[in-house]
Design a protein around this nucleic acid. Structure first.
Lengths: 156, 156
DNA sequence: GATTGACAGTTCTAAAACAGAACTATATGA
DNA sequence: TCATATAGTTCTGTTTTAGAACTGTCAATC
């Protein structure tokens, strides 16, 4: 399957994976959420090759996750900041981090702790239902085809 | 950077990306959460090459996300089911799907709808703070180094 | 006024990963 | 005996990635 084909799939997971479904994109986004913005900053903290970094940044800009804005004239230099669409990836990033915190830490414990500014406490993210506010688990959810589902192939 | 190096990073995101940070692993997990369990089922619904599918399934088993269990003797056949560690990836999958629902749908609308069994309503997942229950956003969180953070290089 | 350094890339080659197709192995049923 | 089902493995060629060097613009320094 080509990457382009993924975008066309009638599946919100596949379409999102077309945007962020490779290791470097996710690591770049981690840096973005840690307030990194510049080419050299991404490159030195990730160790990604310059070639791939340039390509991934272009892709993220093309999909509207990042915006490339000049921060100085002569020579013209650009930095990359999260758009609202990019900021909306926060739950994705945080749920990935949280799974790693639970299942992939060594004896030393978590590399990072997260403080909720509003209540001032260290927290874990919890996924709840938008309608009733109760936690959501795999077994507590039924899936239904939506309006954008693949058409069942009609006979004749 | 090699995949193995990712696992060793003092970062819960990098370590999780080492497990699920490629397009096929995420798509395979989607199928798992849709109750698919068998090699042929994964292969035909994803269009992944048999070679890669075998490799990815081995990787997911090695990391404890899936368990390979025999479902018949003679000839011995196996199927793949989510472990608890795998089930815990549900928030990751759902947050990816939700982002796609918001930002990647075409005019036809969502390919799938999710019903919360407990309250009976179609819902969206919302990420809230484990301590105060309020929604969490990128700008509302402070990051602190934890006990597993990279040691600051000591002088001499 | 020549040289160095910062920054944001681009270009090149070799190594690794992936796609597509065919093949293997074991057993059931026609 | 032959076809079918399932779960893989093997092969070849293409695409992607890693690693390193190179380009271009400008400011600051010797």
């Amino acid at each position: 399957m080509k990457w382009d084909a993924l975008e066309e799939e009638p599946c919100s997971l596949a379409r999102t994976v077309a945007v962020i479904g490779d290791r470097w994109s996710l690591l770049i986004l981690r840096e973005c959420f840690l307030r990194k913005r510049r080419f050299e900053a991404f490159q030195s903290s990730l160790g990604i090759t310059r070639h791939l970094l340039a390509e991934r940044l272009k892709k993220l800009v093309r999909f509207g996750v990042l915006r490339r804005i000049p921060y100085q004239e002569s020579p013209k230099r650009y930095e990359y900041i999260l758009t609202q669409k990019g900021l909306d990836l926060y739950p994705v990033i945080m749920s990935i981090v949280h799974w790693g915190n639970i299942h992939m830490v060594d004896s030393r414990g978590r590399p990072m702790l997260h403080e909720h500014k509003k209540c001032g406490k260290m927290f874990d993210p919890v996924m709840v239902c938008s309608e009733c506010g109760e936690p959501v688990t795999a077994k507590g959810v039924h899936v239904h085809p939506g309006p954008g589902a693949r058409q069942a192939p009609t006979a004749a």
